[in-house]
Design a protein around this nucleic acid. Structure first.
Lengths: 110, 110
DNA sequence: GTAGTCAATCGTAAAGATACGATAGAATTT
DNA sequence: AAATTCTATCGTATCTTTACGATTGACTAC
């Protein structure tokens, strides 16, 4: 997305943004939900469930792997994708504490 | 981002993706954190804190308003931006339940 | 070995995102 | 009224994202 000026933000802010990217596309949300519901999955199955081309699904999986929230193991004859529990719990903590810094009952400027 | 095929996903998946977009850029994370820490804020102040041009900050604010997570009221001589408590608690619930659908202790395919 | 399957990668088109300078609009201050 | 202040919007350059067909590489099955 154009050029993000990563260097002017804190490491925490950049990490939050990166983790949020995992959820910022409906296809990735769908993939994560599928992986969770099945405990394990392969790309071929995912292509059947999502109405997206194999190359597109693979690209989304690559992005999720870059973020670290899933990992894929070559487990012939298939590749086995799973949620990475470490990064998932990082996401739980990160979004949990971020979302808790504001209590919706607080009155603001209105 | 190219053309997202919104129509092939559920409404819930699209909403999650949209809410996640609020947090998927470090500048927007920084803006939200500033709004929270001050309870109320204006664009001018934000421009001073972030090393971004006024037009850029305004653009991020517009995106946050589109998502609904903040709202701005013209309150001369300033515009007062606040977190929208309704959407914020929607985000709390949405991410909370999504992240809770997977328990990191579960063993997966490894 | 040959054919078939599965997934990653390449190449590419189209569209969205990011950033900024410049301008415009609305209100206050002088 | 003129100058000032603040923010939204316009216009634009550049980079990223999304999506897909085609190809490649690796393994399985025949």
């Amino acid at each position: 997305m154009g050029v993000t000026k990563t260097e002017i933000f804190t490491e925490q802010q950049n990490r939050i943004a990166d983790l949020a990217k995992a959820f910022s596309h409906p296809a990735r949300v769908a993939i994560l939900q599928l992986l969770i519901s099945r405990k394990a999955c392969v790309c071929g199955d995912l292509v059947d469930e999502l109405e997206l081309a194999q190359a597109t699904v693979s690209q989304h999986l690559k992005e999720l792997k870059r973020i670290g929230i899933i990992h894929g193991e070559i487990n012939p004859p298939r590749v086995c994708y799973c949620i990475n529990p470490v990064v998932w719990s990082e996401a739980q903590k990160t979004f949990g504490s971020l979302l808790d810094t504001f209590a919706p009952t607080e009155s603001c400027c209105n």
